[in-house]
Structure formats: C-alpha cells, structure tokens
Computed example of a mutant assay.
Amino acid sequence: MSEDMSQEIRHLLDGVHKTWNAGDATGYAALFTEDADYITYFGLLVKGRQAIGDLHRDLFKMPIKLDGPGEPSVRFLSDTVALMIATGGSVVEGRRDPARDSVLTYTAVRTPEGWRLSSFQNTRVSRP
C-alpha cells in the first residue's frame, strides 16, 4: 500500500490520542464508524459511535491521559481496510502505572469521510 495511506492511518491514531487527552468525547467518537465495536480492557463491549461517545463523556471526567502511542504496526488487508496493533499506557494524576499498559488492536476502514475506526480492543499486558 502507499505511504500516503500509512500516513493517513497514523494520523487517525494520533487523533485518538489528541481527542482523548483533550477530553473531547465528541471528537473521539467521531473517529469511529457509526456501527463500530469497542471492547474495553475489562471486556465491556460498546456498540456504535453514539455509545462510544457517551461512555467517554463520563470517563473523560477522570484524570486519565494516554501515554504513547508506541509505533503501531499497520497491515493493509485491502485498499479500504487496515489492521493496526499498537502499545500504549495511561497516566493517572500525573503518574504512569505499568499495570495499565495495553496492547491495542484497531480495524480501520476507508469511508467517504476518510479513514475511521470500525473496531477497537484494549487488552492489558500480562506480566509473569
């Protein structure tokens, strides 16, 4: 796939971090498709852009910021679908907690509005 497509995907992931850290639930939700599937680190399945925004409106009232992201791996499954795996963590009240480190899986699709996230799953990193 083209370098432009890879840059567009990375820009989408940058938007995830920017809107989260700004506490912008509407902007965050706008990065997802209307029918997106969103799975939290504790296994809650949230369906749809509206529900994702609603969930994050409350969450963004807490002092949690995203740390990272690590450089994502991007694999284009077609010209209109990309799979991304990234790592990340969070900072709570100014302190980074390694217990909050995650592996993040995203599926992005090309829409008439540009690339949007169709699915997301957050899995905590397991340590022995």
Rank of each mutant, 00 (worst) to 15 (best):
L59N: 07
D67T: 04
E3M: 13
A29T: 10
A25V: 02
P98V: 10
L45V: 14
A99P: 04
I52W: 09
E8W: 01
I39R: 04
A22R: 12
H56Q: 00
P69I: 04
D58P: 00
E34Y: 06
D37T: 12
T105P: 04
A82Y: 02
N122M: 09
T33H: 11
R49G: 02
S118G: 01
H11F: 09
H11L: 11
L117Q: 07
S6F: 05
V74D: 03
V103E: 07
I9A: 08
E71D: 11
A82D: 05
R124W: 12
N21R: 09
T26L: 10
W115T: 00
V91W: 01
M1S: 13
T105A: 08
E93Q: 09
A30F: 01
G70N: 07
T80S: 12
A82H: 04
G68A: 07
A29Q: 10
Q50E: 15
T40G: 01
A25N: 02
T105V: 06
V16K: 03
K65I: 04
D37I: 11
D79K: 13
A86S: 13
S2M: 05
Q7F: 10
R10P: 08
T105F: 04
W20S: 03
I85Y: 01
A29S: 14
L13P: 09
T105W: 04
G15N: 09
V92E: 06
D79P: 04
V16R: 08
L66G: 00
G94A: 06
M1N: 03
A108F: 03
S102R: 12
V109N: 02
A22N: 11
Y41V: 12
E3K: 06
I85D: 01
Y106F: 15
R127G: 10
I9Q: 01
L13D: 07
V125H: 09
Y106W: 15
S78P: 04
L77I: 14
R95G: 00
A29Y: 12
G48V: 11
I9N: 04
Q50D: 15
I64F: 14
K47F: 07
S118Q: 12
A51K: 14
A36K: 11
R127K: 14
T87C: 10
L117N: 05
H17D: 08
D24G: 08
S90I: 00
A30P: 04
I52P: 02
E71N: 06
H17T: 10
T123V: 14
G70K: 02
F60P: 08
D79I: 01
G70E: 13
F120I: 03
L45K: 12
D37G: 07
Q50R: 15
R127V: 15
V125W: 05
R124E: 10
E34A: 15
D54M: 06
R95K: 15
S6H: 14
P128L: 13
M62Y: 10
S78Q: 09
P128V: 11
T19M: 05
Y106K: 00
R127A: 13
I52C: 02
T33K: 07
S102L: 13
V46F: 08
R127N: 13
R96W: 08
W115L: 04
T123P: 02
Y106R: 05
G68S: 07
H11K: 14
D4M: 06
L66F: 11
K47D: 06
H11G: 05
V91I: 15
L45H: 15
E8M: 05
S118K: 03
D24W: 02
L45R: 14
D58N: 09
S90E: 11
